[in-house]
């Protein structure tokens, strides 16, 4: 039993610590950029002209319709053949942003379309331009409504960040895999890895719940 604790405390946790930091970095870059792009794509689909709307729709079909792993492989292993090189970390972040924004955009598009047309009409009647109406009237309402859906996607992202290891970015799962293989302690290592993910997801969930509460407006949502 002592040996077990020693392994956990002196070997496993220190090496997982590095990996956890990488995972946190992956999601800290991916979440906000994915969200922002998601908003842009959703707005493009709903309010863009025919061409913009079509392009946004095609984007979403492509990135929702293909496995994230395939997207990551193309980014990391495929693009060098046309002279574009990314480090494993950058490839993973780009992949996560491009994929998650497609999902975010669908939640946000649904929310935008659920806003009554009278809101836009009233905004325009006040003399707001389309862009002002979207920025100040439509999005503040739509984004609040999209929080539950987008939260879901963000929580997925925390977990699918483990796919970064497939493009040789050593994050939490990757660090675990290396230790597990070296010491042949798969059960122990991945139990701990799982617990760390659970902790991260819990923190993110708590944060998103608080955000939703803080932004809550009577009668909206």
């Amino acid at each position: 039993m002592n040996e077990f604790y020693y392994f956990i405390r002196e070997i496993l946790l220190p090496s997982l610590f590095e990996g956890t930091l990488v995972t946190i970095k992956l999601i800290i870059f991916s979440i906000p950029l994915g969200l922002i792009l998601g908003v842009l794509i959703a707005v493009g689909r709903v309010y863009g002209n025919r061409i913009i709307s079509f392009l946004c729709a095609v984007y979403v079909i492509f990135f929702r319709g293909t496995p994230l792993l395939v997207q990551l492989f193309i980014l990391y292993y495929g693009l060098p053949s046309v002279g574009i090189f990314f480090s494993p970390f950058v490839a993973a972040v780009i992949g996560f942003i491009l994929c998650s924004c497609a999902y975010h955009s669908e939640y946000i598009r649904g929310a935008i379309q659920s806003i009554k047309s009278g809101q836009m009409m009233a905004a325009e009647a006040l003399g707001m331009s389309r862009v002002q109406a979207i920025l100040y009237i439509i999005l503040p309402q739509a984004l609040r409504r999209a929080i539950p859906g987008c939260s879901n996607e963000i929580i997925y992202l925390v977990k699918y960040s483990s796919l970064a290891f497939m493009v040789t970015c050593v994050e939490l799962t990757g660090a675990g895999k290396i230790i597990a293989t070296r010491y042949f302690k798969y059960t122990e290592v991945f139990l701990v890895v799982g617990i760390i993910y659970l902790l991260m997801v819990s923190v993110v969930t708590k944060f998103l719940d608080m955000l939703e509460k803080k932004l809550e407006i009577p009668g909206l949502g």
């Binding site: 009278g118 009409m121 009233a122 325009e124 009647a125 006040l126 707001m128 503040p140 309402q141 407006i217």
Partner: peptide, 19 residues
Amino acid sequence: NQFRQKMGMVFQDFNLFDH
């Protein structure tokens, strides 16, 4: 937008900004 500022509109179903 200039003209609309000068014409106040009141709708049947209010259309207040809900947020």
